[in-house]
């Protein structure tokens, strides 16, 4: 309001110039906005529309049903359990990835003999498709003829075969572990980029002042890595939350839905049971959760950054 009165007090020429200045940024972001609208908003409205309808298994709308699809989901105890499990999955994989990636990146950032080779080895899992990795793990985890059991027995660690995928108690932690393994290359790359942007002379100055390497890590390296940390968290959360192949290939969410996460649950609803309306509702819920988490996290980070 105040602004408005200030403007009207100014002359007409100034006003139009000001308006033009205001318009420029909008014009500049317009193409990006249009693109985002086409590839994000349009499918979102279509899915939103499906989720509010009674839909047959071929995706053809059969009449408005309000929030019936959502109500049906809340009634399903498997959905609620899956919702929680998805959070454990996401926090487990992203948390584990971050904890392991920081030391790996720090080591790879040092100059040592064979660093190039070590970097290649760390990055290698990235070049294999996640589905293929999961298929290889499925073989390795086979109870009777899997490599993992053979290795454990040959090493004298276990005496009899463990059937890893027979229950969630062993299957789900292993799935999280594989999730961490395939997320590390990307995360390490992000951190390496961050580390290379820290100027060497800060460390020199710090060691002249007598700072121990632990102090250097805590007060120089980690704070300088913070923006890269934010990036890694947000991108990994989005990616892991929606990650399908590991769980699908190893257990298809079983036994008895005990390793389902939202995206495998959604796939079963849509393409096995033909419940397109409920599947669309799950999509909408997933989108809302991701949006909320991302906004919350980014806001939290910008706040702490502003404070420091």
């Amino acid at each position: 309001m105040n602004e408005g009165t200030a403007h009207s007090a100014a002359g007409p020429a100034q006003r139009s110039a000001a308006r033009r200045r205001h318009a420029v940024p909008y014009l500049l972001i317009a193409p990006a906005l249009v693109l985002a609208a086409v590839i994000v908003l349009w499918p979102l409205t279509v899915i939103g529309n499906i989720s509010l309808h009674d839909v047959n298994r071929f995706g053809q709308l059969r009449g408005f049903s309000g929030l019936a699809n959502f109500a049906e989901l809340w009634r399903d105890p498997d959905f609620i359990a899956t919702l929680w499990r998805t959070l454990i999955w996401t926090i487990g994989v992203v948390g584990g990835t971050l904890i392991l990636s920081v030391p790996v990146a720090l080591v790879l950032n040092r100059d040592f003999h064979g660093r190039a080779l070590a970097r290649v080895i760390i990055m290698l899992p990235w070049s294999v498709s996640v589905t293929m990795t999961a298929v290889v793990w499925r073989w390795a985890l086979n109870g009777e003829s899997g490599m993992l059991n053979s290795a454990l027995r040959a090493g004298g660690i276990t005496e009899s075969n463990i059937v890893w995928l027979s229950s969630a108690a062993t299957a789900f932690p292993i799935q999280i572990g594989i999730g961490i393994l395939v997320s590390i290359p990307f995360t390490v790359t992000v951190f390496l980029a961050g580390l290379s942007s820290v100027p060497e002379d800060i460390y020199e100055a710090a060691s002249i002042e007598g700072a121990s390497s632990w102090q250097q890590l805590r007060t120089i390296t980690l704070p300088m890595l913070r923006p890269f940390m934010t990036l890694a968290v947000v991108l990994n959360v989005i990616y892991v939350f929606n990650s399908f192949p590991i769980i699908w290939v190893l257990t298809q969410g079983g036994p008895a839905n005990s390793t389902d996460i939202l995206v495998t649950y959604l796939y079963k609803l849509a393409f096995r049971f033909g419940q397109m309306g409920q599947a669309a509702a799950v999509s909408i819920i997933m989108f809302a959760i991701l949006l909320a988490i991302t906004l919350l996290y980014v806001r939290l980070v910008t706040k702490t950054e502003a404070k420091s």
């Binding site: 109870g143 009777e144 003829s145 075969n161």
Partner: peptide
């Protein structure tokens, strides 16, 4: 076989082919 919930039809067929 141990842990049947880890065995799909193809997995059990493999056990049969291996004589297990």
């Amino acid at each position: 076989q141990d842990g049947p919930t880890a065995y799909s039809r193809e997995d059990v067929q493999n056990l049969f082919k291996q004589g297990k």
